[in-house]
Design a protein around this nucleic acid. Structure first.
Lengths: 210, 210, 210, 210
DNA sequence: TATGAATGAGGGTTCATTCAT
DNA sequence: TATGAATGAACCCTCATTCAT
């Protein structure tokens, strides 16, 4: 082993450690934020829970607000990934199926990030202008996706004539509210998730009339 | 005029002034909270806007949190009044009609208290345990009302067989999200309100399928 | 006494108290700054010495930097007043006499504000851009005054031909340095002050050659 | 080559490197201190500018204060060298000439260490007790030298009867202030330096009277 | 009742210095 | 010797609440 390699090894190890440390703080903060809420969370809480010194926090993150934004971005990217990429071309699967898949994927993603989603849903709104912008953009892109799918469905004759904007909002709202409700309770079982998914789909497709 | 009467008059006038002053501070706080958000609002902001002294605020209200809870209670009572009291007896109007009325009433109530609702939706969640409890209770009672109506509808044969709990959540969610969206924009015109009301009703009743 | 007068009395008393409190903090800060230096002075030091609470300090002054600037401004105004206003017209007293008077006045002013001057001389330079600007402006105006007087003297034939800019700097420098030296020692007696004043004048007028 | 010699070579090379590295950090710190001022300078600024690691700094210097003291000492020694060593014996050149030479030498020395001198003049005063002591000692020794020269001049009949202490202070002050003024501006040209040197000398020798 | 000056418990952030590698 | 991540003591400032007048 030449010295270069040794140094390389050290550097690599150090870098890996830095990344894992960062991830550790990030996930700790996620937990603390979820438990106490953004405003009730003190930097002291995070560093105590993470077992690090005060200054160490500021090596890895710019500020309390900064780490929150990082968590927010992380979640929004992840959630967006569960929705974006649905085909609406002529050869694509029927809208109903796509929506079911989307719902299932979202439910799973939210389940995978209970704590994070809980924070976002409960704390992010109205926190600061930048957060608001990000959330608006996020919901806006979802809205576009859903209303686009509905328009497509109308063209294909598998969706009846309706106010796509309003209905897209309704669909988003119904899914969002269901997720909120379930997050506030304990973890949702897979069967529950499926039951809820089917019910919301059925409702969205056929309404409540007989 | 005896002295007693004079004192009575004084007392009455003083009492009236106390009440009106309290109302003045309350409505001022509502405006300020709505404009800046709960956390960004300082007691200084409220007293400056209300034109009162610092100490005066604490004569009428226990704390910043206290006045917020008062506004919250006020709104929840008002909103609840738009929903509660719907008849589900055999002689009652059809569920469809009742829902339309309810939606219309809610939209109007929210429009009447834009500022307050805006705060509740954006700031109240996760503020403290007590607020959370109140909101849970509020949404819970709405949920019960809606799912009860649905059950009733099922018995009457005017609602098809569906998971009433999940669907009730969906209905609440769709209405709530629409209200959120519209609150963040400018004031909704009456025609818009009606259009949206009809669209959400139509969607909830018949779904998206042709 | 009508109620208005009573209120007036209260208001007046309160205002007076506020002013005196402010002055108290200001003079305390002056003492502390002079004793420990700007950077070594903590807000804690000032409030402890002034016998006030932390928050009280911030009622009267914006910040540590703010109170320092106030002291600085106060001194510069006072010192400027000892220098500005000298007549240079044809009917004015001879330059020599004017300079002597100026020196005497400056020495007295500095003696009256030992602590303050000590801070300004020792701490102000290089503290921040604004302080630098103020000091540059202050010394600049002195320089202008002195060189103007010299020019005038030249025209009147009571000052020989010399580089007025450089010589004005020299005069300022010699006075400034003497003041610095004396401030660092104990208080200067009146006789010392006069002796020094005469010596510096004599030196400035006639130089060191026989 | 024996092993000892090799080791000797290594040791020597290592030592040389150590010395040059130390000098490198020192001169970098000088630059940074001059640019940002002592208090605004962070260790981070120095190590970044020097291209070394955090810990390395502390191998070569004890502390931020330590490296500053080293720069201070270095400058004071250098400046002292421009003043000390002037002969005052009977065979020595006339005082006037000696003073002119001294002024010229000081101006040059200051020009050679603009950055450092700038720091000393702007930041050192009041930094800590030790710095104050060193500066007092430095100026004290200059004062002694100048007043000694004046006394000597008086004995030789080339300096008139005057308060040597006060006048020594004046001379120092005038030179110091001029240097300060020029340091704050851009670099002084040689001709400017000479012009200023002659003017200050002329002024010091003959005063302002015709 | 009304006032507004006073309070003081924190909170987030900085940065000189240390130390394991 | 060189590194740079880790440390934690300090510091300035905020602001909800109190209380003497």
């Amino acid at each position: 082993m030449t010295q270069e390699l040794t140094i390389d090894g050290r550097t690599r190890r150090a870098k890996a450690q830095r990344i894992s440390r960062r991830a550790h703080i990030l996930s700790t903060a996620e937990r603390v934020f979820a438990a106490k809420g953004y405003h009730q969370t003190r930097i002291s809480d995070i560093i105590r829970a993470a077992g690090i010194a005060r200054g160490t926090f500021y090596i890895y993150f710019e500020s309390k607000n900064g780490i929150f934004h990082e968590l927010l971005d992380q979640l929004l990217v992840e959630l967006r990934a569960t929705v974006v990429g649905v085909e609406t071309g002529p050869a694509a699967p029927p809208v109903a199926e796509q929506l079911l898949e989307t719902v299932t994927r979202i439910v799973r993603a939210v389940e995978d990030h209970r704590a994070l989603t809980r924070i976002i849903l409960r704390e992010a709104v109205g926190l600061d202008a930048e957060v608001d912008r990000k959330l608006r953009e996020f919901y806006g892109s979802l809205q576009l996706f859903v209303s686009g799918s509905l328009e497509n469905g109308k063209r294909l004759g598998i969706v009846r004539d309706l106010d796509t904007d309003v209905v897209a909002s309704c669909i988003l709202g119904s899914v969002k509210y269901l997720l909120e409700q379930n997050l506030m309770l304990g973890p949702t079982s897979d069967t529950d998730a499926e039951r809820i998914g089917r019910a919301v789909l059925d409702y969205n497709l056929r309404g409540v009339l007989p």
